[in-house]
Nucleic acid binder design. Structure first.
Lengths: 175, 175
DNA sequence: GTCTATATTTTGATAGAC
DNA sequence: GTCTATCAAAATATAGAC
């Protein structure tokens, strides 16, 4: 999506119209304003993310393997991440700087991962500090995405993903 | 600085003029274009950062204590970070999305910290993987800044800073 | 539903008076 | 050096034909 590649504020109706191949004016038949398009895009992403988390949930019963699914998004999506950063994190920071009302929706996107991860850690035998571990993992992912974008370094991403896997093992072994 | 609070592209000449209290037109006596202002801002930040790293260097001879200075920026600057994110990281990602020519300068800002941290790890007895450790620490900081901005959670920042301190100790003990 | 034409505002940038 | 006035382009948004 264009908002991901260019950022929300920088993406104009002309850009969107060129991509979707309808005229600028026609846009207002479907949406009342540009902000409403943003709302729709974020709502869509919320749905897609919920579906993805459900799919990871359906893959198996092992919470540790599920957490590994999360860690490995960094590898699976490394090309777009190196080019444009993390779609969740970059949107949240942009909307925060804009003071945009939809900022909360972007944070809700983070919350989806946070609560999902927390539940996995609870099941993996760390109920007392599940949220702490979830936030730690989220932060690590954000940091890797940020530097991957800055340095375009694929080896760095692979290395950090491996280290997060090691960290996960020691955390669960401590349970 | 306004570019930090609002982002570069979103900050208009009108915004800058209001802040600096000179007229829009007068700006072109000092700079040829908006991009030239960005260049000046980044160059200034590069200088300031170099000065800060030199100051940390002058504080003492212990490389571990110096690295701790870096980790603790997250605490010292927690208010602006919770409000606007990390000034280095958010600028780098914005310029990457814009495909802006000054993108390299923003990464040079990262490099300042990276090479400085690398040198400290080398002196602390980890010459073989000093760059790996420097990048890891940079990534951790970026991640904490990103989530601090999203959740405005001061306790989270303090907790992660403490964990980074623990990590640092185990790394140096392993030397 | 989709288009063209247009209104309005704002942007980065220029010209010229003082 | 700083200002006002202004330009041209691009932005969001609206009106109305088809």
């Amino acid at each position: 999506m264009l908002f991901y590649r260019q950022g929300f504020e920088t993406t104009s109706f002309a850009d969107i119209a060129a991509e979707v191949k309808i005229s600028r004016g026609n846009f207002y038949y479907h949406f009342r304003s540009k902000d409403e398009i943003l709302d729709a895009v974020v709502a869509r992403r919320l749905d897609d993310t919920r579906a993805m988390l459900r799919a990871w949930e359906a893959q198996g019963a092992d919470p540790v393997a599920r957490i590994r699914c999360f860690i490995e998004i960094l590898l699976r999506n490394r090309e777009p991440i190196m080019a444009f950063g993390c779609p969740v994190g970059t949107l949240a920071t942009e909307l925060a700087k804009l003071g945009h009302p939809a900022r909360g929706e972007a944070v809700a996107l983070f919350d989806l991962f946070r609560t999902w991860l927390r539940r996995q850690f609870e099941r993996a035998g760390r109920p007392a500090d599940a949220d702490r571990l979830a936030m730690h993992l989220l932060a690590r992912s954000q940091g890797v995405a940020s530097l991957a974008n800055a340095y375009q370094d694929e080896a760095f991403v692979a290395r950090e993903v491996a280290e997060m896997g090691d960290w996960l093992e020691t955390q669960i072994a401590a349970a």
